[in-house]
Structures are given as C-alpha cells and as structure tokens.
C-alpha cells in the first residue's frame, strides 16, 4: 500500500474526442522503435469495441476470491497495425499511385468513431479516454513472476522496471484494461508512467495539460484540497472503470449524461435515459445511476441560481482548480526522508 495515491478524474461530459491527449502522450513517450501501435493514452468511442478490441470483455483482474483471472493475450489484429503511408514515393518518387496505407485498415484505435448507438431519433455516443489506472491492487504487478512491476510507495504510480522485464507478458494478460503493451524491438512490456517526471517538476501530465476540453483533474486522492479528492471522495461523482475486476483503479470518470430521449423534455435523465443504463453500469459499475442522479441534482441547483461546488469544480476554469500537484511528496520520498 502506497503512502499517497496520485489519481486522475476525467469528466466524460466534456470530452470532445479530439485526441489531443493521445497525440501529446504519443509525442512525449511512445514514438520510439516498437512503439508504433502503443497508445498509453487512447480515446475510444462508446458504444464501440475499444482498444484493443473488446478489452473490456476479455477478462483479466481478480475474481471475487482475489485470484488472478488472466485473459488471452491480444494479438496484433486486435490493435490493428500502425499504418504507414508512402508519401515519399507519392510526393517525390514519381509514383502516380495514390497515397495508400500499406495494409487494409481493418482495425485501429477509435475504429468505432461516430458509429454511435440506438435509432436515429435517440442517437447516443460518448468518448472514453483511457490511460493506465495505476491500480491500488495492480493485477499486472501480481502476475509478474520477476517482480519487474512495482508501485511507488510515495505516490502510488505503477511502473515497469525496464531492467528486470524479460517480455513474458503475464502482465498484459492480467491487466483488465490492457494498458500494458509489448515492445517487440525491446522485447519488454511498457506502459503509461503517469508522467511522473513531469509531476516531479510540478507540471501536470501531458495528456491533461494539452486537453482543450479541460476535462482532466489531477491530484493526490488523500489530499483534501485536491480536486480528485473532492470529486471522488467528498462528492462521490466519479467512478472507476470496470470496478468488478477488483483492481481498484485510480483513474475515475464523471459518467456521461445526455439529455432525455427526444419527445420527453420534462423527464429527468434517469427517468428516461438516452444512454442505456446497462451500457453505463457495465463500464462503471452499479453505482453509476446514483452518480447520474446526483449530477442532475447539481445541474438543477445551478439552473435555479444556487451555487454548485461540483459544477464549479467540473468547469475547471484554470489550472489551480484542475490540478493539485505535490512534487514535494515525490521528492521527499524519493530521497528516502
């Protein structure tokens, strides 16, 4: 158990699906050899199959008795190949062929974009940005026979020791979120590092800093002044992904709530939800409709002219509202004091 736990809250009602977070992460961390298909941060559309395909139905995590339940190892086809385009030949090599990807694109990150769900009168979709959940009980850590995965005592960030990893990939099978990736060139697993080098310098995670929708909140979960503590612990309006897998994820989501179905303007969201309850419950667990009702209450309060601390927080006007970074605890602990 770590002394403190860094956590992130993402307000899914604000996600534009622009993938700026993904590009920020990709540019900063995963543009090396063997990392082409890696998205430590990805954004997927729901309803949809996710990345890798059907990761949320694959298994992984722990059963109710606390036993590891590893899934299959997703093949590259479930990620889709990173596409290469022959711009050189097309632009400078005299080729008259059109620029084409080197293989047929039959799957990839966010392959389901804009498909949405339900009929044309009541369409729905939402974006689901995902990073490693830096779980309280990481299944990847439990699965690694070499103890190459560790959870930092000072801030709860889960890392792969690149000196110890031998590329066995038990971690990938164990992770219910499939947020570890195997680098074929390096022959080892790699994953989101929660931008700890940035946090140690007092800068927010790259994905959060670049987010135009300002939907990400970062802080220490047990720091009562942090937005993540307020949203998760105090107001209880943010939930972890796939909580039934027993890993205790530390990335939390303010669930999306869309207007009621067309033709029911006076109904509440929970009375006539456009987003099927079962879709939300499968992703965020049985408490999700309680949270939706609570958020709707906060919205009504604001509409009546009263102040809503939850909405003030979720608007996230500036960095001081969205981030409560504590480089002091990281440095103090790292130096062994």
């Amino acid at each position: 158990m770590s002394k403190h736990q860094y956590a992130m809250v993402m307000d899914l009602n604000k996600c534009l699906g622009c993938h700026t977070c993904t590009l920020a992460c990709k540019k900063q961390w995963t543009d090396g050899d063997g990392m082409a298909y890696m998205y430590w941060n990805n954004v997927e559309t729901r309803p949809g199959q996710g990345y890798p395909r059907n990761f949320d139905r694959m298994g992984g995590g722990f059963d109710v008795r606390g036993n590891l339940r590893p899934s299959k190892l997703p093949p590259l086809e479930d990620y889709g190949e990173a596409l290469e385009y022959d711009y050189g030949q097309r632009l400078f090599g005299g080729s008259k062929k059109p620029v084409m990807p080197h293989v047929l694109a039959d799957y990839g990150p966010n392959f389901d974009e804009d498909m949405g769900g339900d009929d044309t009168r009541n369409p729905y979709h939402f974006y689901l940005p995902r990073i490693c959940n830096h779980c309280t009980h990481p299944a990847c850590l439990e699965a690694c026979p070499r103890k190459a995965i560790y959870k930092r005592a000072e801030d709860g960030i889960v890392l792969v020791d690149q000196e110890r990893c031998r590329g066995y990939r038990h971690c990938i099978r164990a992770c219910p979120y499939k947020k570890l990736y195997f680098n074929v060139v390096e022959s080892m697993s790699q994953k989101c590092i929660f931008c700890y080098p940035r946090l140690e310098k007092g800068r927010p995670n790259a994905c959060a800093a670049q987010c135009p929708g300002r939907l990400r909140f970062v802080g220490i979960l047990d720091d009562q002044e942090s937005p993540v503590h307020k949203l998760v612990v105090q107001h209880k309006v943010a939930l972890g992904l796939l909580p039934q897998r027993g890993t205790g994820p530390n990335v939390y989501y303010v669930p999306p709530f869309l207007p009621p179905k067309a033709g029911h303007p006076r109904a509440t969201v929970s009375q006539d939800p456009r987003l099927p309850v079962k879709v939300l419950e499968r992703l965020f667990g049985p408490r999700v409709m309680d949270v939706v009702r609570s958020l709707e209450g906060e919205l009504r309060r604001a509409q009546r002219g009263s102040r809503s601390e939850v909405l003030d927080l979720l608007i996230g006007r500036n960095d001081s509202v969205r981030y409560a970074l504590r480089p002091d605890i990281m440095k103090r602990s790292a130096s062994g004091k």
């Binding site: 063997g34 298909y37 997703p74 093949p75 590259l76 990173a82 990939r169 990736y181 195997f182 060139v185």
Partner: peptide
C-alpha cells in the same frame, strides 16, 4: 521494416 511480426 520496422513493423513487429506480432505482439503476441
């Protein structure tokens, strides 16, 4: 030539 044969 940089593409991995397979990640699994």
């Amino acid at each position: 030539s940089r593409h991995p044969r397979s990640v699994s």
